[in-house]
Structure formats: C-alpha cells, structure tokens
Design a binder for these strands. Structure first.
Lengths: 128, 128
DNA sequence: GTGCAACCTGGAGTTCACTCCAGGTCAAGC
DNA sequence: GCTTGACCTGGAGTGAACTCCAGGTTGCAC
C-alpha cells in the first residue's frame, strides 16, 4: 500500500506539518505509523481521515469535538455515536449558512445604497 | 433625539459592554457622546453603525479591516473607498459561502454513507 | 563519508478578539 | 444621606488553534 511522507501528507491534506503533529498529539488523529528511523509514514486511510477532518474544521467544528470524533473512529461499534455527532454538526453548519446568507443580504443592501448615493452625487456634481 | 445607555446599546446591537468599549478604544467606533457625569450615551446613528458592524463581524471581517471601515466613515468624501472595501469583503463572503456549501455536501455524503452502513449492519444482525 | 534537506521532540510563543478585574464614580430610590 | 447597581478607566488575562524554535537525527545524493 502506498504511504506518504509528512510533507506529502501536508500538501495533500492542506494542513501544515505542525498541525499534523499537533492533531496527533491531541489524539485527533490516531498515532501514525513510523519508519525504522522514526519518521511518520501516513497511510492512504490516514489521508482519507485527514481529508474529512479538513472538511469538519472548515465548517467550524471546534478542536474538542474533532477529538471526540477521532476517538469514536477508533472503535468500530460507535457508528451511531458518530452519526449523532455529525448530524448535530450538520445542523450547526446549516444554521451558520443561513446566518451568513442573511448577513450577505444586508451587505448587498448597504452596497446598493452606497452605489445609489454615489450616482446621486455625480448627478449633483454635473448639475452644479 | 433618542439616546441609549451602554446596557441598551449592548442589548440592541448584540455586542457586549466590553466589546463596545473595546471597539471605541480601537477607533472602530467614533468616540461616543457622554453625559455630564461621563457616561456613554449612544445615538440612533451609533446604533445603526453598530448594527452594520455586527453584520461585518458575523461575516468574518477582521478587526483591522473593521477599523479601516470605521475610519473611512468619519470622512464623507470616502464613499468610493468604502464601496471598494465592502465589495472586496462581499467577494470574500461569497467565496466563504461557496466553500461552506461544498463542505456541507461532503458532510452530507459522509452521513449518507454512515447511514447506509448502519442499515447494512442491522440487516446482517437480523440474518445472523 | 560528507553535505544537506527533511524530519524528530518538548516546550515556548503568537495571534485574534475579546473578557475580566480592581478600584473608583455617578445617579436613582428610599 | 445611604445603599445599590450601572458605569468609568487602564491594564491584565483568556481561550482557541495553531506556529515557531532549539537542538538533535536520518537518509539520500554525490
């Protein structure tokens, strides 16, 4: 099976080397396999996990919950717990998305107002 | 004209008292009027500004840029700069929104996969 | 067999955006 | 006039999530 160096894992996952080590220390990622010399050797499956962790992080899941998810993944019998955790998170993401859309509308209103303001001024300038 | 106490301003804007003072110190908010006794007295216009600042913050505008916007608002001739700043921010919000939607899709995929996994196991359990 | 880049560890430092605190002032009710 | 609660200031402290550092090891390329 193909394995990846720390640099490759970082490039492919989008996390920095330091963040990869940090996640491992924090128990978010299970201990990564090592070469004879002690270097980390990321498996295909590690990369898959990292990809999903990236998704969770980018949708705002806090580190603490990431750790909880990471722990659950080490035990096969926890699928229902994982589903519960992810459903809760999905709901949070949905709320955030809706909030963001609402604020975006306000922002667009303000911009529209500013633009009409600018036009009015230009008209006034021409007339003066 | 109606004015608001710090507590009212906090309740209506959604910022904490400490945050209101912090924003003023940081020059994000222009110096707020004071009563004879030295207490802050927020105007209708201050409340309007705060409402929009809340919108900018909730869409992820960093404090530094908020300050820049606050400064521009003190000079009437800066409308084009403000428009430029807000357009740039609107683009960032749009990108964030798209990113969030993409991640949401991944999350939903994972959930769907987990749910089908659960079903399969239940079927296996019944058959065994 | 030497140079050099990538990697290792434990722990300290950084950034952001607040949030809290101590010690004091102001104002309304009784 | 006294209590009480909201408010004031300057400055220190917090939590989250990294990020950086020093000092040392590994291993490939020449």
């Amino acid at each position: 099976m193909k394995t990846y160096t720390p640099a490759e894992a970082a490039a492919l996952s989008g996390f920095s080397l330091d963040t990869l080590r940090y996640y491992e220390r924090e128990g978010i990622l299970p201990p990564v396999a090592r070469t004879a010399g002690g270097r980390r050797s990321y498996s295909e499956s590690d990369l898959g996990t990292l990809g999903f962790l990236k998704c969770l992080r980018e949708t705002g899941m806090p580190i603490e919950k990431l750790r909880r998810y990471g722990e659950l993944c080490r035990d096969e019998t926890t699928v229902p717990d994982r589903v519960a955790l992810l459903e809760e998170h999905a709901a949070a993401v949905q709320r955030e998305l809706e909030g963001l859309l609402a604020q975006q509308a306000k922002l667009d209103d303000k911009l529209a107002w500013y633009r009409s303001e600018l036009e009015t001024r230009q008209a006034a300038a021409i007339l003066s």
